[in-house]
């Protein structure tokens, strides 16, 4: 569910006035992207669910303070990121690519073959494994830029980093990701096994 900024503003105003349906619509409009972001950072569905839930609760309880000059999604992402970093500081998450892979992707047509399913699962696991080889900054910047389509300037603002540093992390991270993705243990064998 996508909403433009005008609709989003109306939803925020209605939700601030106590409209639960508007609040639900706001959550539905942003939960998938925040969830995907945290899931790629944490590699854990349970952690992602908890963090996304807590982030939206905080957003709703502070909605009257929202400044319309900023993007709502940036605000939610900032809160979610802070919660994720707090969770990491408390207990480092164990990366569990199987957990990520256990979830089916969206957009899979009902007639998707078992072959396609398995191939995607293998690729998804390989991607998570490759992402986990990156540094925290590289991983986060790559996710924000390539998964969330955030511009460099916004990422720099979000991470409180100069734009040049963001670009540098992005370029190095992409090279490393490409290499790690290609050399994930047994990826080519798994893929060829699937294709066979």
């Amino acid at each position: 569910m996508r909403v433009d900024r005008k609709q989003e503003r109306q939803l925020i105003e209605r939700a601030t006035a106590g409209d639960q349906q508007a609040a639900a619509a706001l959550i539905k409009a942003h939960q998938a992207s925040v969830y995907a972001y945290i899931l790629r950072l944490s590699s854990r569905h349970d952690a992602a669910e908890d963090i996304v839930q807590e982030a939206f609760i905080r957003v709703l309880t502070n909605l009257h303070r929202f400044d319309f000059r900023y993007r709502f999604s940036t605000w939610v992402f900032t809160i979610a990121r802070r919660l994720y970093l707090n969770a990491v500081a408390k207990h480092r998450p164990a990366y569990d690519t199987d957990t990520v892979g256990a979830q089916r992707s969206l957009g899979e047509a009902p007639e998707t073959t078992v072959y396609d399913d398995e191939r995607r699962n293998v690729c998804r696991d390989a991607l998570q494994e490759a992402l986990n080889t990156l540094s925290g900054e590289q991983r986060e910047i790559i996710i924000l830029f390539h998964q969330q389509d955030w511009p460099i300037a916004l990422i720099a603002q979000h991470l409180d980093m100069p734009e040049g540093t963001v670009k540098s992390h992005l370029h190095r991270g992409r090279k490393r990701l490409r290499h790690a993705f290609e050399t994930v243990d047994g990826l080519s064998e798994k893929l060829s096994g699937v294709e066979a």
Binding site: Q31, A32, Y35, L127, L131, Q147
Partner: peptide, 9 residues
């Protein structure tokens, strides 16, 4: 692969 949508509850 990263851009592929993730199923979110």
């Amino acid at each position: 692969e990263l851009r592929r949508p993730v199923a979110s509850p």
